[in-house]
Design a protein around this nucleic acid. Structure first.
Lengths: 246, 246
DNA sequence: CGGAGCGTTGAAAGCCCTCAACGTTTGTGG
DNA sequence: CCACAAACGTTGAGGGCTTTCAACGCTCCG
């Protein structure tokens, strides 16, 4: 399997030429498997490579004084997890795995050559980091303006669409290897309140979250609770978008 | 005055060559003055130019169903406000002025030429958008993990440092043309609670916010309340950083 | 089979919001 | 220069959403 198969898949990948895919492919230094729940990059650390996530779930987060952390991004297959570290040279946050993860490692030295010689590919890489920024903005909106049910619903809808774009959903179901504590750290809630909120979403027939699996039961209802509008994901018009437009 | 004077100032500007400054300078299509409180770019709109803010204050925001908005970024002099719109081609949020603003307009057609021919400048432009992303992440942390006093204190400290980097502070004082409503829309609070929070910061001798002017009275105390660590701003070691290190 | 982590539920407390009223500042036109 | 209105800022009371604290059941894995 080509390691770049899912990169930008469903998010404007069609603009990448075969030559560009080959070049990115050739820049891969190695492929590794990382165990679940391990730290990959520490805040403030000088980084000399970036990580393309092939399979599994990772996250980026920041620590608070009270011992809790705040997730700032969830990363799924196809994500160039810490490409931000390339122009920035060091990261302002930590990166870790949630599930076991298979990753391709690309050194910044290789990226130097790519970005010198291939301006169009450079713009696609740039674009992929800005898709992350758009997600960041939506997380700000989620935390600043939505109540607990809205936040959790919004997170579920976003994650569903992202996984759907890379073919990791099955009829409204998808795997999500997050504890209720993790969900709380993503949504700015305590695990206790996440629990109550999930129960309510289940009772309202909107979504069922249990044992690492999410089932979207009522996408329209969930979207309403979440004030969710997927344009910020910059998705191509895929199967889901066509269905929703009907 | 050169329009690029404050671009990346204090944020790694030393790496931009004179030739690169000239090239960016030459890409400016026109300089305009925009009135306060006007919308510059609408969400979903195809954008064909980006805006370098020379003087004044702008913001990026998203609308919620209840009529309130959530600020996702505050933009000050030197910021390339909507450079995100270049690789993304359309924006997922609105852009508007808070005060009157003087801006330089750079068309994307010109950026195409720059990014084709000048890979190092391209990386600096890329970097500047990722500095925005780092700010986004810190806003997520602020909203997800801090209480009202922490959020407002954090916002004040961040804004102070950014304005200080471009020489817009005066002995701990700076102009901030935001109403308490605006502050609430930045911090996920109601204007009423912003009012109470500002009063408390004043009573505690931390900061005084009144009539569009902020005075930092106790930077260390404010930083403690805010859990503020300025590394995410990627500031050069300027006067403030040296003082703080003592 | 035992333990640790995760999930679930209840009760009480706290932070922030809502609603309401009033004071202050700003800007505009007479 | 004044009058006036509109926006902004301030304060109080009450209510609601979320947190905290605590206890217990469940699941998974060594």
């Amino acid at each position: 399997m080509r390691v770049t198969r899912d990169f930008l898949r469903g998010r404007g990948r069609e603009r990448m030429t075969e030559a560009e895919k080959d070049a990115l492919e050739a820049a891969v230094d190695r492929v590794e498997t990382l165990p679940a729940r391990t730290i990959v990059v520490n805040r403030g650390q000088r980084v000399r490579y970036s990580t393309l996530l092939l399979e599994g779930t990772m996250c980026r987060y920041m620590d608070a004084r009270d011992g809790f952390r705040q997730l700032v991004a969830l990363q799924v297959a196809g994500d160039f997890v810490d490409l931000h570290g390339y122009p920035l040279e060091m990261l302002d946050h930590d990166v870790g795995t949630l599930s076991e993860a298979r990753v391709a490692v690309i050194t910044h030295a290789r990226l130097d050559a790519l970005t010198r010689d291939m301006p169009h590919l450079t713009r696609l890489l740039w674009r992929s980091t800005l898709l992350d920024a758009a997600l960041h903005r939506e997380w700000i909106f989620r935390l600043g303006r939505l109540d607990a049910a809205g936040r959790v619903a919004h997170f579920l809808m976003e994650t569903f669409h992202r996984l759907d774009a890379v073919g990791r959903t099955d009829d409204g179901r998808f795997a999500l290897p997050l504890t209720q504590q993790d969900l709380g750290e993503a949504c700015g809630l305590t695990s206790v309140h996440v629990n109550r909120t999930l129960r309510r979403l289940r009772e309202d027939g909107l979504a069922d979250v249990a044992r690492g699996t999410v089932r979207i039961l009522n996408a329209a209802g969930l979207a309403r609770v979440a004030e969710f509008e997927p344009d910020y994901l910059y998705l191509e018009d895929g199967a889901w978008a066509r269905d929703a437009a009907e």
